[in-house]
Design a protein around this nucleic acid. Structure first.
Lengths: 180, 180
DNA sequence: GGAGGATGTGTACGTTCGTACATATCGACA
DNA sequence: TGTCGATATGTACGAACGTACACATCCTCC
């Protein structure tokens, strides 16, 4: 009812700061103190708002996955034919990456966590389901499955391979799944 | 010329121990002490054989990537037609994973490191080039590129998605790239 | 306006860490 | 056999960590 003593989005800022710190130094290099410094809050605030580091990481990655999903949906909602869909996907794979290398790092950090801790796997599950839902607005379910995996692999290989991956190769790969 | 004071594969054992520790607790949870305990060597041995943690990680992941590459090559060297190739790839994506979940964890830990530190990207570069070389024994270069990325994406999605990925869907996806 | 609960903070404790380095052990060779 | 590098180890130090918790601050309601 009344204004909180301090900013009510203190928690939000901590989560955003956590994502920035993770992108910079990885989960390995993330500590309460570093996140607190980045968010401009006292150390005590960390344990007050989050009972453990794991809870903070979980909430941070949940927010991250939702953001990426929203962008994915926004990019693909505008297309109306297979050719446009292919172009949109090629853009996602080749351009988004250049804009935000942090996204690659955060994605991989999340996958790594999910591979080891089941608690984080729910985040990847939901993320992948949302991606498929978006793709299923344009293609059938099985194709959506394949396309989603292909996009994942292309994104990683374009990012971590020295050999340049041409947009034409990516486009051709996508179109192979789109043709009936 | 003469036998070393101690076992000459002390270094090797440390590297293997490091991989075990990384698989268990991630790069984040890897320390000199833990690796030393696992390898059965004194703490002093760590800094003696490796000037830094980063050097140990680099050598460990190099060895890991080479091992996976060898297995990949062994699996694919025996095939002689597209159908067999598809079956071999489906096996790689669906079965290897069940055998060794550690491989997934280590792969993702490496990718995460590579995404942030260029020094580790050389390892992924070499790994991906070796994979393509193997694939190019069966298909043309562009197809090898696409297939390699597809395998990557399928592997990750089969591992981190709750929705089951049928082998038939994987096989169909692979065959789409194999058909001329 | 004062009591008391909710909200937020500063600090201190015990642990673990990477690293340095003095010391110990051994093999090679005179 | 005795000496001298090379090889290897144990230990100690300062820094950073997660967490607990006593304390401060503020809002609400009587």
């Amino acid at each position: 009812m009344t204004a909180r003593r301090h900013d009510p989005d203190r928690r939000d800022r901590i989560i955003d700061a956590a994502l920035a710190v993770i992108a910079e130094g990885g989960v390995a290099g993330t500590s309460h103190r570093r996140v607190a410094d980045r968010a401009g809050v006292p150390l005590g605030s960390m344990t007050y708002h989050f009972t453990s580091m794991e809870e903070l990481l979980h909430e941070s990655f949940t927010r991250f996955a939702e953001r990426i999903s929203e962008r994915f949906a926004a990019r693909l909602s505008a297309v109306s034919n297979p050719s446009q869909l292919a172009s949109a996907i090629v853009d996602l794979v080749h351009s988004d990456l250049v804009e935000g290398p942090d996204d690659l790092v955060l994605t991989l950090e999340l996958y790594t966590l999910a591979a080891r801790k089941p608690a984080f796997r729910q985040i990847t599950h939901d993320w992948m389901r949302r991606s498929r839902d978006v793709l299923e607005q344009h293609v059938d379910a099985k194709t959506a499955h394949k396309l989603d995996a292909l996009i994942e692999g292309l994104f990683i290989h374009v990012s971590l391979d020295a050999t340049p991956h041409g947009r034409d190769v990516t486009r051709d790969a996508v179109l192979r799944f789109l043709s009936s």
